[in-house]
Design a protein around this nucleic acid. Sequence first.
DNA 1: CGCCGTATTGAGCGCTCTCAAGCTAGGTGG
DNA 2: CCACCTAGCTTGAGAGCGCTCAATACGGCG
Lengths: 232, 232
Amino acid sequence: MIKNEHQNCGVCQFAPLCIAQPDEKYKYFDSSLPIQRHISLHKGEVLFTPRTPFQSLYAIQSGSIKTTQIEDDGKEIIRNFYFTGDVFGYKALHQGMYLSTATALSESDVCEIDYRTFLSFLEKNHRLQEHAIYTACSHINATAYLHYNSAERRLAAFLLDLSNRLHPNFSKDVLYLPMSRQDIANYLKLTPETISRISTKYIQNKIIAVDKRKITLLHYERLREIAEKGRV
Amino acid sequence: MIKNEHQNCGVCQFAPLCIAQPDEKYKYFDSSLPIQRHISLHKGEVLFTPRTPFQSLYAIQSGSIKTTQIEDDGKEIIRNFYFTGDVFGYKALHQGMYLSTATALSESDVCEIDYRTFLSFLEKNHRLQEHAIYTACSHINATAYLHYNSAERRLAAFLLDLSNRLHPNFSKDVLYLPMSRQDIANYLKLTPETISRISTKYIQNKIIAVDKRKITLLHYERLREIAEKGRV
DNA sequence: CGCCGTATTGAGCGCTCTCAAGCTAGGTGG
DNA sequence: CCACCTAGCTTGAGAGCGCTCAATACGGCG
């Protein structure tokens, strides 16, 4: 199947910097960021592993990635989910090496951006260094809802977060989750059983509809109330 | 009392950028970051409040700051603690305005760095833009321990974190906490009662000693075990 | 001395976890 | 076609951690 390679570049955090950006509004820049290479990943394939020296940032052109770590007690913990348009690797930038494993949750296309090249690119494009710092800062506290005090709040906030991030070109009400319940539970510091029980409760209250990994948000406002108001 | 104004500048995240840095090793840079002004804050004084437009980053020369937000349910939540050498304001950078209230926990001296000045400074000092991005990235996941699954783990990790950050020029074993138990509880998503109960348990096991806000770490390794191993 | 804010201690409850069983969809082989 | 298996998900029962509510202790200060 032939697809438009640049169809999602408009939502990429690096769009203002990137050579692949076809939009006229970015044409005035001196030069454009050279993408080192495009990487295609099958579901389950690994992009990087812990202790690999940091060299590149990654932008997701399509698909979804999870980053995970193994705790001392042997359990896997999910650090983050990344979707179309997201740029990741900043934590490795600071540590000098990747500390987590990045695994494709679905068929994914990723742009690799060599960090040394990126820096010298910024030196030649002063107007873009601001955007680069801005992008790095967007990762701070992006997941404030993980601190919410109840399972109901965290799951509701997670669904709203996905609604905004998952399918930039599609409906915000119908989510096709690329990750398992186990992954969600892991990310929200809950158990799959708790996820399941709360989902059932939401379904009974006609807040969402669930068909396997297809989630339909039926009552957006109610979901927002649950996420924000805490224990009802 | 006369104090050395630059005594803590060596541990500042912005040391390589800053005019106040007296160390010879930084002398080779083209120019130095102009600090807009020094701000002295008394305990309880507020540096910025929510919805104020973002204009400056702040570096703590001495003292300690907490950033807080009011949740929809009216409760205050603590976003972060910042100590000597820390630079903060990056989240506001991304949002365009400060979203939290920054309050001094003790007598504090803060350097204000105008962000436009900062950017134009970076344009003239390419070698420092890397450090600027590096500093911004240091805020990502800096507080991973907040996600730990038990109260004992979180409190142990918090004490270890403070041990590294609180008194750069003093002992790592004796901590003088600038914040109340309420603040700690709030930050760790626990209650003051739980903090108190776990502290008592640690005292009984001779892991720490407590005298009001003076905490002595008696058994560093045991504390690390608790923080890392999870539910014992 | 009394007052007030902070910290500690105690009793009981509820949310979430653990452990276990049951369910569903999809795949394989007869 | 069905029987069987597996992985992922759901449902149920019981236990424990941390919360709520309340009482008490402590120190600073007028």
